[in-house]
Design a protein around this nucleic acid. Structure first.
Length: 273
DNA sequence: ACGAGCGCCTGTCGGC
DNA sequence: TGCCGACAGGCGCTCG
């Protein structure tokens, strides 16, 4: 479930609790959690390492340890909690790291989609990701040129982590609405000025999302309130804030997709009907 | 290269 | 009330 702003919020919140912590032991409660290495190797080698920093790359939480690096991807239903050792393990906890102090880290993951990598070479995984959309190095010109290199529907392209890192279903719908682009618009037909507006829209929704500490919907609440500022996501049949036309919900690339049929016109987007 | 379909999981919600 | 399908902030795979 979490996208870039939610992961950023989690990472910022975790820093105070995790930086400098030494791992005393690890409990793998569901083996499928670990992408690599084998559980025995993991448990043996992570003990004694300490957490040097807490970072984010795309939707990955990056924990560089004294020797190796721990990568955590929350996928749809993951969360990271730090609790006191007197607090019980929860039902959906899949991996637990006990620290030298009175706390432990729990990787909660109800749907078991989330994954953890313990590796000396995190770049093997992170290196496949596209640019960070909020970095200064990510420019409107770069976006335009990248769009030209593909002939793909714009929404699935923005969701492709090799194209840009961090966009998910909510913020993509919101960015396309802000940009006035139909989710099925073909990427190579998007003009320079439209790409410029899309670039600005992507940065705007992500920045606002971070400012609001992310979006809190469904059963997981992390204190974010960007759900109160959503323009299209979750607003099926409700009036568009700009023109009053009912927001439509369709499937694009297997994902629920919300847009305003008036403000995000197919004909402007070169979409065949 | 692209897009559709499906699998992976657990839980909730709406309709009948 | 109970059942059953649809759906959920993600991503990897196969197939045509």
């Amino acid at each position: 479930m979490p996208e870039l702003p939610e992961v950023e919020t989690i990472v910022n919140r975790l820093q105070a609790d995790l930086i400098g912590r030494k791992i005393e032991s690890a409990d793998l409660l569901w083996e499928g959690t670990l992408s690599t290495p084998e559980p025995a190797h993991f448990k043996k080698n992570i003990v004694g390492q300490y957490i040097s920093t807490v970072k984010r790359r795309g939707k990955y939480i990056v924990l560089p340890l004294s020797v190796d690096t721990l990568l955590i991807h929350l996928r749809m239903s993951g969360d990271i909690l730090v609790r006191g050792k007197d607090e019980p393990i929860h039902k959906h906890d899949r991996l637990v790291l006990y620290f030298e102090n009175e706390h432990y880290l729990a990787f909660s993951n109800m749907r078991k989609f989330g994954r953890v990598w313990f590796t000396p070479t995190p770049e093997d995984i992170l290196g496949k990701l596209g640019p960070e959309p909020l970095d200064d190095s990510f420019t409107a010109k770069m976006l335009y040129e990248k769009l030209k290199r593909h002939k793909r529907q714009i929404k699935p392209l923005l969701l492709d982590q090799r194209f840009i890192a961090g966009m998910g279903n909510i913020y993509t719908d919101e960015a396309l609405y802000l940009a006035g682009l139909h989710p099925l618009a073909k990427s190579d037909l998007i003009e320079r000025h439209q790409a410029q507006i899309l670039w600005r829209s992507i940065r705007k929704v992500l920045t606002e999302g971070i400012k609001r500490n992310g979006t809190s919907i469904d059963w997981i609440y992390r204190g974010g309130d960007f759900q109160n500022y959503l323009q299209v996501y979750g607003r099926k049949n409700k009036p568009c804030f700009k023109c009053g036309t009912p927001i439509q919900k369709i499937k694009v690339g297997q994902r629920g997709t919300h847009f305003c049929p008036q403000c995000q016109r197919r004909e402007f987007a070169h979409v065949e009907t």
